[in-house]
């Protein structure tokens, strides 16, 4: 232990002899400036954003329902216009906690790539909390102009809910379309 004492004392004294208080300030100042400049350098910053996904993929695990539910390319989102509830604390079938699912909804069909059949999809909006802001999708396949309100997705479909404030959209399968229409 005495050896440690002597070593520490010698180091301290040599530092005190060789440096002034001003040089410490200069050293700290240079360090702070350097630290501020360092993150600006292009050190693999791209990997944090554009290269990687903003959300972890969410899949069903069912080969009959393929695809990543946080991606606008997921088959059920073929006519969606809005934020994906899967990215907002809900799921493809359920609203995030604290929101209410609107009973009034926009309905269309999407083709499931697993069996190439048309499924009837209900895009129930979740309402009551301000916009989620995550995973905005706007695919609009089969969307009709506003003169056909029942087939237009630009309307706020929160009209039937307690609050008309829009949060996000689900994509619920409600049926299977017939292969041959009447």
């Amino acid at each position: 232990m005495i050896g440690f004492d002597k070593l520490a004392e010698r180091l301290t004294r040599s530092v005190a002899r060789q440096s002034s208080r001003r040089s410490l300030l200069a050293l700290l100042g240079a360090g702070i400036t350097g630290a501020a400049a360092f993150p600006v350098l292009p050190v693999a910053r791209a990997a944090g954003h554009a290269g990687g996904p903003a959300h972890q993929p969410v899949t069903s695990g069912n080969p009959q329902d393929p695809g990543d539910r946080t991606s606008c390319d997921y088959w059920r989102y073929c006519a969606i216009d809005g934020f994906l509830c899967t990215c907002c604390g809900g799921s493809v079938n359920a609203c995030p906690p604290g929101t209410e699912m609107s009973p009034i909804t926009w309905i269309g069909t999407c083709t499931n790539p697993a069996d190439n059949r048309a499924y009837i999809i209900s895009y129930n909006d979740c309402c009551g909390v301000s916009s989620c802001g995550q995973c905005l999708c706007n695919r609009n396949e089969g969307d009709r102009p506003q003169v056909r309100p029942q087939s237009n997705n630009d309307y706020n479909w929160c009209i039937g809910a307690q609050s008309s404030v829009y949060n996000c959209s689900t994509a619920v399968i409600v049926g299977l379309a017939l292969d041959k229409p009447l």
Binding site: G108, I120, G175
Partner: peptide, 18 residues
């Protein structure tokens, strides 16, 4: 009613939303 399944599908697509 010529085809009840077709009617149900059309109901889902054209009416049920509201």
């Amino acid at each position: 009613v010529v085809d009840a399944r077709q009617a149900h599908e059309d109901y889902m697509l054209k009416c049920q939303g509201c």
